[in-house]
Nucleic acid binder design. Structure first.
Lengths: 213, 213
DNA sequence: TCAGGACAGAACGCAACCGTATCGTCCCTA
DNA sequence: TAGGGACGATACGGTTGCGTTCTGTCCTGA
């Protein structure tokens, strides 16, 4: 006997209303994250999301017109968790706090699976690329700029310090370790990384440097 | 008129033999790369590879039993391009050369799309993870270990320098820039990055007093 | 109160792929 | 030189997902 032959009325439980229901939206959002982590954007299917969320496909199409739009909106909404600007009084302290916050974010299994996946997808999809770019800019790039500015005002760094390079040298190794080598990120490692990054920022303006180019 | 309506016999051109033909294999390998770059591993289909390579699906199934095995083998074969150990006589020179080689590799559009995609997939697929891990170890990790050893022997670095951290601090920012922020990687940027990484390695061991005195 | 509309569920036709099988051709090795 | 087998092509049934449409239920705002 197939599913289609079962009595129909018996299986229906809840119902709807004349307004989009928040709990349905929440269930869909959660399902999107889980499915993204489990299968990636490429293999994400509306049907699987609906199945996991326990909703009908219509509930999804009523909210978003496509898989892309759905993912972009759900991801954007989640990305607005603003990162606080560290202010420990020293450059190395600030960097250490920034690294800690970054490591904590990347330790989330959802994030550590979904973010690399979407980044890979971004190379084929300009909309995804733009969304991620904005998320990155809004959350972290400004933070490190402020951090550099504070350090400059304290006299810890020269005024022409390259904030962009600083940003790369703080988050690059961390992301590399989490996403590429998949090695564990211990507090001790973060200590050493912070130390190295601090030295890099200070030392990059050594003897031959200062081209400013 | 669609292709499917053309007379069937007229389109057959080549034929086969009693041995796997190298040019067919090469065509398939190239198609795998192109399809991987275009659609990612998740959306890679055997049929599309066969179509692009201009071969029948049988030619593929005769060589590999599954999409996973096919991709792993093709990618592994391509990853054996060994990176020469830089030996410029100075640590910063070696780092600069390593960065240059890395940047050149990542500038290839195929690589810069396929590698992040497979890395994302690796978080769901242990076989892919292992393959990439091996490729990374064989090509670059040993290189940077030798580089550090040379620097230690020259007296440029203390004997207890953390090679792992060094590795992360050299390639991390580069990969971050290419794969995450998608910013251009100029020679000038590589110069500054090499400078910073060098300072990080030297300065990570003790108070960052260097450069000036 | 009451009607509009969101709801879950089911089914639709269509398309893409899966992995396998079969065909006739023709190359390559023994 | 003989024949085994790789070759491209095609077809197969099965699966999955697409986006749409319909149904009957029942919530909710006006």
């Amino acid at each position: 006997m197939s599913d289609a032959e079962k009595p129909r009325q018996a299986r229906r439980a809840p119902a709807g209303a004349a307004v989009l229901q928040k709990d349905v939206t929440l269930a869909i959002q959660a399902a999107v994250f889980t499915e993204l982590a489990k299968h990636g954007y490429g293999r994400l299917s509306i049907e699987a999301v609906a199945r996991r969320a326990g909703v009908g496909k219509t509930a999804i199409y009523r909210r978003w017109s496509s898989k892309l739009q759905m993912v972009l909106e759900v991801v954007s909404a989640a990305a607005v968790k603003v990162m606080p600007v560290p202010d420990t009084g020293t450059l190395s302290g600030d960097i250490r706090e920034l690294l800690d916050a970054g490591a904590q974010a990347m330790r989330h299994p959802l994030a550590s699976q979904i973010v690399p996946d979407l980044l890979a997808e971004a190379s084929r999809n300009p909309d995804i690329a733009e969304t991620l770019e904005n998320a990155l800019r809004e959350t972290q790039q400004g933070v490190s700029a402020v951090m550099i500015k504070n350090a400059v005002e304290r006299g810890d760094l020269p005024a022409d310090t390259d904030a962009e390079l600083a940003f790369d040298m703080v988050f690059g190794p961390l992301y590399w370790r989490v996403a590429v080598t998949r090695s564990p990120v211990s507090n001790d490692y973060l200590d050493r990384l912070a130390e190295g990054a601090t030295a890099a920022l200070i030392g990059a303006h050594g003897p031959a440097a200062h081209s400013g180019g």
